[in-house]
Design a protein around this nucleic acid. Structure first.
Lengths: 145, 145
DNA sequence: ATTAAACCTATATCTTTAGTAGGTTTAATG
DNA sequence: CATTAAACCTACTAAAGATATAGGTTTAAT
């Protein structure tokens, strides 16, 4: 029941890109350095996010990545889904229709369906904007002491 | 974010044992056969459940396993925890105290803490008794047609 | 032409999951 | 007391998935 590094890194990267000027492209190199992830591995994490349309990539000199929308338009759920593939706690809930031959007699199916729902509902309720606020609150020095 | 076979099988086994007479010991062989899991693998799944005090094992002829309590006294959470080890979605939430050096500046920590909570709350809310009811409802022929 | 960047494909390593094998101890029963 | 049926224990293997790494190609700005 663990979220992999792909999902965790993907969220952190999205938060970081969201803190930059939305018009600017942020190069992979800068992200890799500040997050302390190798450029090559980060590339593998970002690629599916670009394909999913969450990030816009710009090639060539001066290129990089920027958000495709505003931070409040992303949910944690869709970012994790793009990076991890699926959030379903059991594989039989992954497709549109349940293909398990035992589904009709499965005593635990409702449990998994319910678990899947609370996970999705929660992760849909948190936006990238929410995460960015935490980031700037912690880093930003809004502290008296 | 997947529950492993250990957790899934553990739940199914608990449901099955709960459908027998609570005083009877059910031998591993019978469980393995009806659930279509090898005896050896099932043994590895049941052992930690016995150690955790969820099941009572009886050695020797006529022995087997029975519930240590009544079905309504088990939650899905504790069964899964005994089988899987931990339900935390990220490893930094596994211990009592968060040992991650970045915890103070982590923008996503609250997200993981919140996710951990909804998962736990949901799984604590479902009892073994609830699952047994589904099993008997499906298998038991309470149908008109 | 040079440079800096995304993009692409393949490969390697490491960890976890899933499953097996073979034996020892315990307890009931004829 | 021998037999049998059961849990219990330790070690091992195989497959899958997670976590990266390597080396190159294409694109675009200067």
């Amino acid at each position: 029941m663990k979220v992999s590094t792909k999902g965790r890194y993907a969220l952190r990267i999205m938060v970081e890109i969201a803190t930059y000027d939305p018009a600017d492209y942020v190069p992979l190199r800068a992200l890799a350095e500040s997050q302390d992830i190798s450029e090559k591995y980060l590339e593998a994490i970002i690629a599916p996010m670009v394909r999913a349309g969450l990030l816009a990539g710009q090639r060539g000199k001066g290129g990089g990545y920027k958000l495709a929308r505003t931070p409040e338009e992303y949910t944690a759920a869709e970012i994790l889904r793009a990076a991890e593939g699926s959030l379903a706690p059991v594989s039989c809930l992954e497709g549109v229709t349940n293909v398990c031959p035992r589904a009709g007699q499965c005593a635990t199916l409702d449990l998994w369906t319910g678990l899947d729902k609370v996970i999705n509902d929660y992760l849909e309720s948190v936006t990238l904007e929410d995460l960015v606020k935490k980031e700037t609150a912690r880093a930003g020095g809004d502290y008296i002491i």
